[in-house]
Design a binder for these strands. Structure first.
Lengths: 219, 219
DNA sequence: CCCAACCTGACAGCTTCCTGAAGCCTCCGG
DNA sequence: CCGGAGGCTTCAGGAAGCTGTCAGGTTGGG
């Protein structure tokens, strides 16, 4: 698979390059966005790995311009933990997946495989939860077979529950996960999003435990 | 953990069966793919060990059909050294791990533990206390296997006992622990909460020592 | 047998949560 | 540059269930 890696950090870039080259992919590695634009224009890539913090501009902008031109090449975002708001913005801008640094290289290989499968038409793993069929990679949900659309925040919230099925999550934990460090939420935002999720996915998807937090409902 | 072992070799199958049964898992061993399909359909397994060379068909086909149905049960492939192409095909088809025969049985146990942790997403330590399984991080308790719901105060109280298992705790100590400094309690609140805990978790969970306080019951 | 300590069902007050509605922000098309 | 749309956050009124209190019953020691 032809992959374009956009990453300015030399150490991380080399590690990623070696990993995916070792998986048998053909990798071009650029460190700046202008070089990335040139590369995209001249070569047909099947996948882009995009760091969001680059010396000559924000990666988000690059992604948006790509999509604005009608380019549907799958993009996986590489982002640091303190850029979670960027992450949500990235998904809105048309990214296909994201990885939070520092990430496991094996995890990277798996995500690449997943994105690749999605675009070659092979099926992704589907998580079944009661009446819900969830395709995490494609970010699609069916409830009793009919598709349901979630917004970016709703996805982030639902993923938090799916990633730890039996775990109770306090509102503080959910805020940490949905919002960048230090971004204070001073209202019942989490409650509102939970309410919306329930309306879309079913009332019993998320159970509240008063004074403690929320938990994924029984399948 | 409920494990399905699909392996036609009698000697290897018995060895594997004994090893993972010895780890405390519940194992069903089938020698043919048709029997495996029946077993998968009737029983909910948490892990599948799949030999790729079977008398009535190739294991790869079984795996692909499983994934095509949306089944995400983790699968570990058992393969001989001369089937490396099958192995790669297996990973592409949605296997989670592989072992090359002849493999070390301890290695098998380790891989099972790894895959199980990855998929149940539950590396939380579980405290066993008599009939109770307590997952402090997830805030979940099972009594004889059935889940029990505690309220916030009940958790706080129970945690006080669990954190110092053998220690006697006076009512004054418990009040200090459950309530903010200065918040005075002017009734038998602690007694009431102990009573509620006993009703939910069993009468012998907390023992009374008259005039002194309370203590966690014997496991 | 008596008294103190403890248990437990009931209940009202109050914290916590739900949800509709409104305002604000960003993005996008014209 | 403007206006509309969609999404996110905030607010507020109402609902739900936790929790402290009390009263009456039970247990245990002397």
């Amino acid at each position: 698979m032809r992959i374009l890696l956009i990453e300015d950090d030399a150490v991380l870039g080399a590690a990623v390059h070696d990993q995916i080259a070792g998986d048998g992919h053909s990798v071009d590695w650029v460190k700046r966005l202008d070089a990335a634009s040139d590369a995209m224009a001249s070569t047909g890539y099947e996948l882009v790995l995009l760091d969001l913090m680059l010396p000559d501009g924000r990666g988000i902008r690059f992604l948006k311009e790509l999509r604005a031109r009608g380019d549907v090449t799958p993009v996986i975002i590489l982002t640091a933990l303190d850029q979670i708001t960027d992450r949500i913005e990235g998904l809105n801008a048309g990214a296909d997946d994201y990885l939070i640094k520092p990430f496991d290289l094996a995890e990277l290989s798996a995500r690449i495989g997943s994105v690749a499968r999605r675009y070659t038409g092979n099926p992704n793993p589907i998580i079944r939860h009661g009446a819900l069929d969830v395709d995490l990679a494609a970010r699609s949900i069916r409830r009793d077979g009919t598709p349901v659309q979630l917004t970016a925040r709703e996805w982030a919230l639902f993923e938090a529950f799916l990633s730890r099925p039996a775990q109770l999550l306090s509102k503080a934990q959910l805020e940490d996960r949905l919002y960048a460090f230090g971004a204070e939420i001073e209202s019942n935002t989490i409650e509102v999003h939970v309410s919306r999720l329930r309306k879309k996915l079913g009332a019993d998807v998320i159970r509240t435990e008063r004074g403690l937090g929320y938990r994924l409902g029984a399948p």
